[in-house]
């Protein structure tokens, strides 16, 4: 069944888009991430312009992270104080990202920028995750504890000023790295149409030593607010958010996520991280391939204005 998307200005098969929402929702529930890094490329692949895809996916991620955040809220597994600190910088990052997005679109380099950020971010993060989880799997085989967590250890980050205490997460850290992480996630999210969950969770664990009990819930609150504000900002400045597309994706995503969570809970942590790392790395390679291989058509068209 075809449905006409009013902003993307093209008809799509409603079941195809719903299926994509379900599949990405399943993966996002399984790994506790937003899934934007998969959804945006998929939408581009079915013919939606990168700009509309990035802008519309932000609302889809807002929906699925809200579902997740409610669940973690019920289990009291999120740190509101930490989330608020991350957010204060995250909103600023999102605004900067939306501004740069508009500028790049004007000079015809947006597609390149999206492609390049995907390649660097996904291959690097994917490789690190694969490396880390393979080591964990090997350690588990040898009968040692799977993760090498040293809760008491301090890095140079802990020597920075403006220290704050976050009671729920039981950490005492400087506000500077918290703000930096919040800004980076907000910025990347607006440019790439991703929630940044797959980046934020490792950053919170490795840099701020946030315990695993509160990390995913807190990350979801941050994703929710940055993506909801990205939706509003993209709609207000670029007029590119396709509400119909977003609605279909949301419905699929929310349902898929519920089944993903159940599957994810049955798997071992390091195996799950290895799978996610492979997935992230593969998507990164796919983008690299596109940038390096000679395109089928060297020419492309872009709409400037109506007369």
């Amino acid at each position: 069944m075809q449905i006409y998307l009013p902003i993307a200005d093209l008809p799509v098969n409603i079941f195809l888009v719903l299926g994509m929402g379900l599949a990405v929702g399943f993966i996002s529930g399984m790994f506790g991430i937003g899934g934007g890094f998969l959804m945006t490329p998929l939408l581009i692949f079915i013919g939606i312009s990168p700009a509309v895809a990035v802008a519309s996916v932000s609302s889809h991620i807002a929906a699925s992270s809200f579902t997740g955040a409610i669940n973690y809220w019920r289990k009291r597994a999120l740190d509101i104080a930490l989330a608020m600190m991350l957010l204060s910088a995250g909103i600023l990052g999102t605004a900067t990202g939306v501004w740069l997005f508009t500028e790049l679109r004007a000079v015809d380099q947006l597609d390149l920028m999206i492609g390049l950020s995907y390649v660097t971010l996904l291959t690097v993060v994917g490789a690190v995750m694969i490396y880390e989880s393979v080591r964990a799997v090997i350690r588990a085989r040898q009968g040692m504890p799977a993760t090498l967590r040293r809760p008491g250890s301090h890095t140079w980050l802990h020597g920075l000023p403006f220290k704050l205490r976050f009671k729920r997460s039981k950490i005492y850290v400087s506000a500077i790295p918290v703000w930096a992480i919040g800004f980076i996630i907000g910025f990347i999210g607006a440019i790439m149409g991703i929630g940044g969950g797959f980046l934020l969770v490792p950053m919170l664990i490795y840099f701020l030593r946030v315990p695993t009990t509160t990390v995913i819930g807190t990350s979801m609150v941050l994703t929710l607010v940055t993506m909801a504000s990205a939706t509003v900002m993209h709609a207000a400045t670029n007029h590119l958010v396709d509400g119909v597309l977003a609605l279909i994706l949301m419905v699929g995503g929310v349902i898929g996520a519920q089944f993903g969570v159940r599957t994810g809970q049955k798997m071992r942590g390091e195996r799950l991280r290895l799978l996610l790392g492979l997935l992230v790395f593969a998507v990164g390679l796919r983008f690299a391939y596109e940038l390096v291989v000679k395109p089928d058509d060297l020419y492309s068209l872009r709409h400037v204005r109506n007369e």
């Binding site: 889809h60 929906a63 809200f66 909801a228």
Partner: peptide, 13 residues
């Protein structure tokens, strides 16, 4: 649109 996302997310949960 953002509100719609919240409502759908809430219904899902």
């Amino acid at each position: 649109t953002a509100l719609m996302a919240l409502v759908i997310g809430w219904i899902g949960s």
